[in-house]
Design a protein around this nucleic acid. Structure first.
Lengths: 108, 108
DNA sequence: CTTGATAAGTAGATTCGCTACATGTTGCCT
DNA sequence: AGGCAACATGTAGCGAATCTACTTATCAAG
């Protein structure tokens, strides 16, 4: 999967992963890997800046903790984040319809 | 629809539009608009550079003509472009599965 | 005591879609 | 005659997000 295919689609995916339970960065990486069937293996240089960006934008809130001598920054969805996630899901449906309308994958 | 959602997905869409008939730039724009149900209204600053990029990459070949006093540059798919389109369609299916596996849109 | 997994981060490059601008033709409307 | 919408193609430069490569640190297993 090409790198910039992800562009603009990563944010809702991250938000979706912390929708029902707060997770720290590393755990978010693992959750994305698992939910995508091993396809979505984000480099840390992608994920951590993305998390900071989403927090700065008000969609996530973070809190530090220490577990087994390791520091964790745990992120949870804010209410703005919930709204963003909902609209992100909606936009995904639109986007999918656009691409498939143009590609017409049935007519290969 | 956000701008960079398109990133990496525009190329196969352009190739798809000229798959069965060669078209000039303006007609490609119209075809994308029509096939997407009016959603995909590309600015010329996006389309024309993309076409040149795809030609430089060997996926499209172009030819000038004049119709009704207007100059047209008509693009057609090369055999490399056909292969690229086929793999682009396949990648789209993978990408869609990844996003939907993470988003789980049924569980809103 | 070295390696791999856990954990978080930054700096800098690259890429590509965007805005804004530039140029010219045809045909319709007033 | 004048003007505007549609047709047709293009460039310059910006911005944002993902990537590669690097840094730091702890813990467990061998």
């Amino acid at each position: 999967m090409k790198a910039d295919a992800l562009r603009g689609h990563l944010d809702p995916m991250i938000l979706a992963v912390v929708e029902h339970e707060p997770l720290h960065g590393y755990a978010i990486m693992e959750a994305l890997l698992e939910r995508s069937g091993g396809e979505l293996d984000l480099p840390t240089g992608t994920l951590y800046p993305a998390l900071r960006r989403l927090e700065r934008a008000g969609y996530l809130a973070s809190e530090w903790s220490t577990v087994g001598g390791r520091k964790r920054r745990t992120y949870q969805l804010t209410s703005a984040g919930q709204k963003m996630l909902a609209s992100g899901k909606q936009e995904w449906l639109t986007f999918r319809a656009v691409v498939e309308g143009v590609l017409r994958p049935g007519q290969a």
